[in-house]
C-alpha cells in the first residue's frame, strides 16, 4: 500500500531531531554530570600524562558550547574514541561486533513469532479456559524472567549437564578451519548458507539456539499477549461474526480475517520490544560468550572502558530509533489508519 512521501520525509526529519536529542543527553551524561570527565575517559589508574591527553581530547579547557561543538563534529566524523580494553577505535570495534548481535536478535524474533502468535491465537479462541490462563502466565513470564539468570541456568542444565547444545561462542573453530569457511557479511548463518557450507551452517545453528531462545522470551510474551488481545477483539467484530454466520468455515475466518488483522499490532509491538531485546543481548552475550555488540558492551562496562560504553550506548539508541521509524512506516503501510 502506498505511503505518502510527506509522511516519510516527516519521519526522517523527526529521526534527525531524535538523533540530536540522543547526542545531547549523552553529552550531558558524559561531560556535565561527572565532576572530572577526564577521569572516566583516561582508563583505570591513569597517569598524569594520560589525564592531560584526555583533557585535551575532550577540550575540557574550553567553554561548554565549544565542547559540544567538538562532540557533535567528532560524532559525525566517526571519531568515537579509542577503547581502553581492545586499543581499537570504538566505531571499528562496534562495526565488527554488530552483525553477530543482529543475527542473534533476528533469530530470537523469528522464534518469538513462531511460538508467540499461534499461542496467542489459541488463547483468544479458548478465552477464559485453562488454556487461556496457561498462555497468559507463560507470556507474562516472558516479561518477568531475568534474562541473565535464565541464560545461566539453561547453559548449566542443557549444555554443561546434559550436553545437548553448545553453551558458548557462535561456531566451533575447528569446523571453520576444516571447511575453510570465510565470512562475507558477518552473518554466519547467512554466509554459510549461500556458500553451501552446511557443516558450518548446522554448527552455527546449534550454537544460536540457546542464546536466541533466552532472548526470545520477552518478544515472545509480548507477541502472544498482543495476538490474544487483538484476536479476541476481532473475533467479536461484526465482519467476522457475519462471515461465520454466512457459513464460512471457522478455520478460514480465523486465518484469513482474524489473524490478518492481528498482524499490524503484533509487528508494532515487536518493534517496540526490539530495544528491550538488544539490552537483553548485553547480558545474554556475556553468558554465552557470543562475540557481538552485547558482549563488547558488557566487557566494556565490567572493565571501566568508558569510551566503548558510551559508543555502544549511542549506537544502540540510534539503531533503536531507526527500527522504530521503520516499524512506524511499515505499520502505516499495513494499516492505513495509522498517522503520524
Amino acid at each position: 500500500m502506498p505511503v505518502s512521501k510527506e509522511y516519510i520525509i516527516k519521519r526522517l526529519l523527526l529521526l534527525v531531531l531524535v538523533v540530536f536529542g540522543v547526542l545531547i543527553i549523552t553529552f550531558v551524561i558524559t561531560r556535565i554530570i561527572p565532576a572530572h570527565p577526564e577521569l572516566l575517559w583516561a582508563g583505570s589508574h591513569p597517569t598524569e600524562e594520560q589525564l592531560e591527553k584526555a583533557r585535551r581530547q575532550l577540550h575540557l579547557d574550553k567553554p561548554i558550547y565549544v565542547q559540544l561543538y567538538y562532540y557533535l563534529t567528532d560524532f559525525i566524523k566517526g571519531n568515537w574514541g579509542v577503547s581502553w580494553r581492545t586499543k581499537h577505535p570504538v566505531l571499528k570495534d562496534i562495526a565488527t561486533a554488530l552483525p553477530a548481535t543482529l543475527e542473534l536478535v533476528i533469530v530470537a524474533f523469528i522464534m518469538a513469532i513462531i511460538i508467540g502468535v499461534p499461542l496467542g491465537a489459541l488463547a483468544a479462541l479458548k478465552r477464559e479456559t485453562w488454556v487461556d490462563h496457561v498462555v497468559r502466565v507463560v507470556s507474562v513470564l516472558g516479561a518477568s524472567v531475568p534474562v541473565f539468570w535464565l541464560a545461566l541456568i539453561l547453559q548449566l542444565v542443557l549444555s554443561s549437564w546434559l550436553g545437548l547444545l553448545p553453551g558458548a561462542k557462535r561456531v566451533d573453530e575447528y569446523v571453520v578451519i576444516e571447511t575453510g569457511f570465510k565470512p562475507i557479511t558477518g552473518f554466519i548463518l547467512f554466509d554459510s548458507l549461500i556458500q553451501g557450507n552446511f557443516a558450518v551452517f548446522t554448527n552455527a545453528l546449534k550454537h544460536i539456539i540457546l542464546p536466541a531462545f533466552v532472548l526470545s522470551m520477552y518478544p515472545f510474551g509480548l507477541s502472544a499477549r498482543m495476538t490474544r488481545a487483538v484476536m479476541s477483539e476481532v473475533l467479536n467484530e461484526q465482519h467476522t461474526r457475519s462471515a461465520l454466520a454466512w457459513g464460512l468455515p471457522k478455520r478460514v475466518v480465523i486465518y484469513k480475517y482474524a489473524l490478518k488483522n492481528a498482524l499490524a499490532p503484533v509487528i508494532a509491538s515487536l518493534g517496540l520490544s526490539f530495544g528491550y531485546t538488544i539490552i537483553g543481548a548485553f547480558m545474554v552475550e556475556l553468558v554465552f560468550v557470543w562475540p557481538g555488540l552485547g558482549l563488547y558492551a558488557a566487557m566494556a562496562l565490567l572493565s571501566y572502558d568508558y569510551p566503548a560504553v558510551i559508543g555502544c550506548v549511542i549506537v544502540v539508541a540510534l539503531i533503536y530509533t531507526v527500527i522504530n521509524m521503520i516499524v512506524d512506516i511499515v505499520h502505516s503501510m499495513i494499516d492505513p489508519r495509522v498517522k503520524l
Binding site: V22, I25, I33, Y276, L301, V313, A317, Y320
Partner: peptide, 16 residues
Amino acid sequence: MFLAFPPLLLAIALAA
C-alpha cells in the same frame, strides 16, 4: 528525547 533510549540503556550509561 529521553524516550528515544531503549529501556535500561540510559540507566546503564548513567550508572557507568
